[in-house]
Structure formats: structure tokens, C-alpha cells
């Protein structure tokens, strides 16, 4: 299973590396959303305050584009059917595709983080760096697991471009909530006035726990469910 996963992931990343579709299209798209958020929200102090939320929103939107892409590669010339007929372990395919998706998401998030710091004048507290890394790791795993599972569900169906966001966005809501709150703690935003005054770094850690549960649950569900889903496709 792990060997299959490694091979599938290497294959997916190889395709992406050669086609450059992610670097040429998805990354600019994510950057563009950051700029558009700034236009829509107008005021500097607001963007600085909501930067964590905007970061994860931009990631979530890009996730949808990436998932479409990763399954368009498979269904275009029946590659998924070929893998299935060849008797490749579906759990391995699932883990491999999730791994490749996670790798692309990590690159995207790293650049978005730079974008948030540059455009929104956010800064990470030195003590929050560990929190940022752990949160990003767990949230990315969760997003990749869920994205691959629902992408596989919608793969090959007519109208999947419009269906996927409808299926995916409600499911990733816990990640959006949890990762945003954890980033707020690490960035130290929302200090000062209002009902959410004074976020401490320690406030971020319960959310990390929730993100871990989310990733574990959907990872297990994907490994179990991907086989039956491929069979019928």
C-alpha cells in the first residue's frame, strides 16, 4: 500500500512539474484572491485583523481548483480505470493522490503566507512559529484527505465542476474554523477591543487537537471508502 502510494504521488507530482499548470495558474489565482480581498475590505486595519481567515479562505478555494485538476488528469483518458483494472490497491491510490495534493498545498500555503505578510502587514509572533507549522501541517493533511475523497466521488461525473464545491465546502468548514482560530493565536491578531480581545498563543492549541481528529477521521474514511467508489466509476 505504501509503495503504491509513493509511486502514485511521484507520478502526480511529476505530471504537475512538467505541465507547470499549478505554478502558472493556481498560484497566481491564490495570490489574486488575496489582492481582491484587500479591495473588498478596503481598510488596512481590517485586513490585518482578518488576515488568518483570508489566508485559509484562499487556501480552501485553491483546494477546489487543485482537486479538479488532480482528477481531470486521471479521468481524461481513463487512467483511473486502467489503474483499477491493473489491480492496484485503491487505498494506495488514495494515499498517493492525497500526498501529492498535500505537497502542492504546502507550496501554495508557503507562498500565501509570504503574501499575507507582505500585503496585509501581518506578523507572526516568534513564539507562534511552532503553532503555525503544526497547524498548517494538520490542516493541510485534513484538506488533502477530504479533497481526494470527494474528488474521487465526483470524478468522471457530468457537472462535477459545479458539484465539487457544493460537496467540499461544507465538509472543510471545521478546518477553516480551526485553522483560522489557531493562526489568529499565532499572529496575535484581534488584540485590543471587541469581544475577542487578547488572544493568547495557548488559545490556539485546542484547535490543533480538533484539526488532528479531523485529519485522522477523514484519512481513515478515505482509505476505506475509496475502493468502493472506484469500483463503480
Amino acid at each position: 500500500m505504501w509503495r503504491t502510494a509513493r509511486l502514485v504521488a511521484a507520478k502526480d507530482l511529476g505530471i504537475e512539474w512538467r505541465s507547470r499548470q499549478v505554478t502558472n495558474q493556481v498560484l497566481p489565482f491564490a495570490g489574486l484572491t488575496l489582492v481582491l480581498f484587500a479591495f473588498a475590505l478596503d481598510r488596512d486595519e481590517i485586513t490585518a485583523r482578518v488576515a488568518p481567515g483570508l489566508f485559509w479562505l484562499a487556501t480552501t478555494f485553491s483546494l477546489i481548483v487543485l482537486v479538479q485538476r488532480t482528477f481531470a488528469v486521471e479521468t481524461a483518458d481513463g487512467a483511473l480505470d486502467t489503474l483499477r483494472v491493473a489491480g492496484v490497491d485503491p487505498a494506495g491510490i488514495y494515499l498517493g493522490k492525497a500526498l501529492a495534493l498535500a505537497a502542492q498545498l504546502v507550496v501554495l500555503e508557503a507562498l500565501l503566507l509570504v503574501g499575507v505578510i507582505v500585503f496585509y502587514a501581518s506578523h507572526i509572533r516568534p513564539a507562534g512559529i511552532v503553532l503555525v507549522i503544526v497547524t498548517a501541517f494538520l490542516a493541510t493533511s485534513g484538506l488533502a484527505f477530504v479533497g481526494t475523497l470527494y474528488g474521487g466521488l465526483a470524478a468522471g461525473a457530468k457537472g462535477r465542476e459545479t458539484l465539487l464545491p457544493l460537496l467540499l465546502l461544507p465538509v472543510v468548514a471545521p478546518v477553516l474554523i480551526g485553522a483560522t482560530r489557531a493562526f489568529e493565536a499565532a499572529f496575535g491578531t484581534r488584540g485590543g477591543e471587541g469581544i475577542r480581545a487578547g488572544v493568547e498563543i495557548s488559545d490556539g492549541w485546542p484547535w490543533v487537537g480538533m484539526l488532528a481528529i479531523f485529519a485522522a477521521v477523514f484519512g481513515a474514511a478515505g482509505v476505506l471508502a475509496f475502493g468502493p467508489l472506484l469500483e463503480e466509476a
Binding site: A173, P174, I177, G178, W207, M210, I213
Partner: peptide, 8 residues
């Protein structure tokens, strides 16, 4: 999961 996260 959604309920738990919103509650938290």
C-alpha cells in the same frame, strides 16, 4: 465534526 468545531 462540524457541530463540535462550531461549539468550540
Amino acid at each position: 465534526l462540524v457541530h463540535f468545531s462550531v461549539e468550540l
